[in-house]
């Protein structure tokens, strides 16, 4: 668990497009991997059942495609991270390598967990997500920058993004993990 409070003005790297609405935290990390007293090693189990399910059908999940390995930004659709409050979900994404998420909307508890872990989740509209997912699929090697300060995503296409004010300030002032601040009052 991170206790550092680095200023998070931007996240840069390649992107992993992950299509689908209402992707719940049971799918992000199946419950059997919650049987642990640490978060160690759960990165490799991110989306495990979805990945296996697709493999069985002869298809490949983006997390298994060679071209997306090492991706840092996840491009998701609506209500991403709904369901259980398990922090194991953003922890598994983070440990797989994801440092920022751009999506149409996020479930609230998931969003809050991401803030505590220093993973900015930016919101864009339906047209913008369609554009950036298509661009990331067309050129997986493209570099993107999620700019928290300027509230924009730059890459093969550039789109405005939004963050709720509070969390945005937390990232920009390095207070996204609030324990130290809470302890001081």
């Amino acid at each position: 668990m991170t206790t550092a409070n680095a200023i998070l003005a931007s996240v840069a790297g390649r992107a992993v497009p992950l299509r689908g609405n209402d992707i719940d935290t049971d799918r992000i990390i199946p419950a059997r991997y919650l049987r642990t007293v640490t978060f160690d090693g759960i990165g490799e189990h991110a989306f495990e059942d979805d990945r296996r399910g697709l493999k069985a059908k002869g298809e490949t999940h983006p997390f298994d495609k060679p071209e997306y390995q090492g991706g840092k930004l996840l491009f998701a659709n609506k209500n991403f991270g709904c369901g259980s409050s398990r922090e194991h979900a953003p922890q598994s994404l983070m440990r797989w390598g994801i440092s920022g998420i751009v999506g149409e909307s996020f479930a609230e508890i998931f969003f809050g967990n991401c803030v505590s872990l220093g993973i900015p989740c930016a919101v864009v509209d339906e047209a913008a997500i369609a554009k950036i997912q298509a661009a990331a699929e067309k050129d997986p090697s493209a570099e993107w920058t999620l700019d928290v300060e300027k509230s924009e995503l730059r890459g093969p296409v550039t789109v405005p993004v939004s963050f709720p004010d509070g969390p945005r300030q937390q990232f920009l002032t390095g207070k996204w993990n609030p324990m130290s601040e809470l302890l001081s009052h």
Partner: peptide, 15 residues
């Protein structure tokens, strides 16, 4: 409902 980081926040601070 909260995540584990917030569980830690509340354990440590009650807030």
């Amino acid at each position: 409902g909260i995540g584990t980081s917030q569980v830690a926040d509340i354990l440590a601070t009650g807030t």
